[in-house]
């Protein structure tokens, strides 16, 4: 059945977008600028796994753990080397955004130079026959993607609600000045946001990398979708980011019922544009 298949595809897309959206939303709400480098972080995740597992031949699970840690460190490094330096010079959020755009281009190009422009596959999970669930064909890996994404969201919410760092992050995003008065170092929270947000993006990169092929520009499209999802859901609300991601995933996949599949990217943007026009604060966002 087409409906069931499109529904399943929407679910998978939503699961992947939500990982990108979550990291983006976290960085945006604490650091208060749109971090375009988040897109290349996803690609860095996928290529690191390719590097550790396919090129170095390390054990798969070790490769996954190394990838997550190194992707987190990659984000942290960008924050310390570039963004912190810019903030110290009192750069506006538009400058931080421009810098992050430059970083996106730099690292996408570097990946291309190091690994080549050709398509790479990680090939850990052999292309297996998909399972037939209610008429939709889903590969086991795709089921894993949905489960991992869901689990990660649950962990993320608990982390933000219960952990000391999570609470401090929410305090900084609510009001940075007040947070600093009660002794929270904003710079430290920025570091944590970048580390955690990038690690989550890295997990997204791993899952996408296992499910699909690797190309250097793979992150940019995902990033646009993830950002759009976060805005549609309501910036600063992690639940909103997840909601927006699934809305976008379903919207795209049911949209190609009517349109050629190449227009998928366009559908996401049209949904975003409609929201910016009619409800710029997003589904769950509060009107200022």
């Amino acid at each position: 059945m087409i409906f069931a298949q499109l529904f399943a595809n929407g679910l998978i897309a939503g699961a992947i977008y939500s990982l990108v959206a979550l990291g983006f939303s976290l960085i945006y709400s604490t650091c208060n600028f749109i971090d375009f480098a988040h897109g290349v972080t996803v690609a860095v995740g996928a290529y690191l796994l390719y590097f550790f597992f396919s090129l170095l031949g390390l054990n798969f699970w070790l490769s996954v753990i190394l990838t997550i840690i190194f992707t987190g460190l990659f984000g942290l490094l960008l924050n310390i080397v570039v963004f912190k330096e810019l903030r110290r010079r009192k750069a506006s959020n538009l400058i931080l955004l421009t810098a992050s755009f430059a970083l996106l281009i730099i690292f996408e190009s570097l990946i291309l130079i190091l690994f080549g422009a050709d398509v790479k596959t990680i090939g850990y999970i052999q292309v297996s026959r998909g399972l037939d669930i209610l008429g939709a064909i889903i590969t086991p890996l795709q089921i894993i993607i949905i489960i991992v994404s869901f689990l990660l969201l649950v962990i993320f919410f608990f982390f933000m609600k219960k952990s000391k760092i999570g609470k401090a992050m929410r305090a900084v995003s609510d009001n940075k000045d007040v947070a600093e008065i009660v002794g929270i170092s904003a710079e430290r929270i920025y570091n944590w946001s970048f580390f955690i947000g990038s690690a989550v993006a890295g997990i997204g990169g791993i899952l996408v990398g296992l499910d699909q092929n690797l190309v250097p520009t793979m992150g940019t499209g995902l990033m646009i979708k993830g950002f759009a999802a976060a805005i549609i859901g309501g910036i600063g609300s992690p639940i909103g980011a997840v909601l927006g991601s699934y809305l976008l995933g379903f919207g795209e996949n049911f949209g190609i019922w009517y349109l050629p599949s190449g227009y998928k990217d366009a559908i996401a943007f049209v949904i975003l544009f409609i929201f910016l026009l009619l409800r710029p604060q997003g589904i769950l966002g509060k009107k200022k």
């Binding site: 759009a228 990217d265 366009a266 996401a268 943007f269 975003l272």
Partner: peptide, 23 residues
């Protein structure tokens, strides 16, 4: 939508537009 959105959202909206045109 330029009047309703924050300045940095415009960067995102225009970048998204670029993607659509490409697609």
């Amino acid at each position: 939508p330029i009047n309703k959105i924050k300045k940095d959202y415009l960067a995102l909206a225009t970048m998204g537009f670029s993607f659509v045109v490409y697609a």
